[in-house]
Computed example of a mutant assay.
Amino acid sequence: MRKRKWLDKSTGASLVNDRFHVQRLIPEAVDQLKIRHRWEVLDAENKAIREHRRRRKNAALKEERELIGQWDPERMENGETMPQIMACSQHIILKHKSKWNGQQKIRAGILFRIFPDLGKAYGLLLKLVDIFNEKTSAGVARL
């Protein structure tokens, strides 16, 4: 990709389109998608906690409260909760999958299974990085 620069006449700002800027913006977009999903996960867990507390509070008898029990979040196959996975997977999408350790591979598998759009976005990011890292002609890269 060659560097191109435009001037926005209405604002006087210059717009730059080159490999560096594109390659920097794509991971940021994928990270924003992950952040949006993280807030969804946190909101869902907070709602579940509030519902659990409401059920315990509304239980008439002590035996009913004991049956309801303490809050126990849902755990994934690796033993972590979804909020933990979302927090610990911060660097997963910023690294190439070839550089993931074993735990990151497991987290990424869970994350991409639950949020397929995030997996698709990460896959597109990897394809773009591979295009930039290969020495290909402009016509082949466009395809």
Rank of each mutant, 00 (worst) to 15 (best):
N58P: 08
S14A: 05
L61P: 02
A138M: 08
K97P: 10
W39P: 00
H52S: 03
Q90H: 13
L94T: 12
L125F: 07
V22I: 12
N101F: 12
P116D: 07
R54D: 02
P116L: 09
K9H: 13
R36H: 07
N133I: 04
W6D: 13
I49H: 05
S89F: 05
L33A: 09
F20R: 15
V129I: 15
R19Y: 06
L126V: 15
I93V: 15
A29V: 14
M82S: 02
L111Q: 07
Q23D: 03
A108I: 08
H37N: 14
R113S: 13
H21W: 03
S89P: 05
R36M: 08
E64K: 02
N58F: 05
N17A: 07
K120G: 06
A29L: 14
K57N: 03
D31M: 07
T81G: 04
R50A: 15
R19P: 00
G69L: 02
I114Y: 10
A60G: 08
Q84S: 06
K57Q: 09
P73D: 04
F115R: 07
S137R: 01
D130M: 12
F20Y: 12
M86G: 01
R113P: 01
C88F: 09
Q32I: 03
P27H: 05
S89D: 05
L7D: 04
G139E: 15
V30T: 04
L128I: 10
I114C: 09
I35G: 09
M86S: 02
P83H: 12
S137P: 01
S89R: 06
K3M: 03
H96S: 15
L7H: 10
K99C: 04
I49D: 01
R36Q: 09
Q70P: 00
I85F: 03
I106E: 11
Q70D: 15
L61D: 11
K99Y: 01
A29H: 06
M76G: 00
G102Q: 13
A87I: 12
I49S: 02
H91L: 14
I26W: 05
G119P: 05
A121I: 05
V129K: 11
L67S: 05
I85P: 00
E28P: 00
G12V: 10
L15I: 15
E66G: 02
Q32K: 11
Q90V: 11
K62H: 11
H52N: 04
L15K: 14
K105G: 10
G69P: 01
A48R: 09
A59E: 00
L25T: 13
R54S: 03
V129T: 14
K9D: 12
N78R: 10
R65N: 02
F115M: 12
I110R: 01
R53I: 03
E63C: 10
L94G: 09
I26K: 06
K9G: 07
D18I: 06
I49V: 14
E28L: 15
W100K: 02
W100I: 08
F112H: 01
A44S: 09
N101T: 11
E66S: 06
E45D: 04
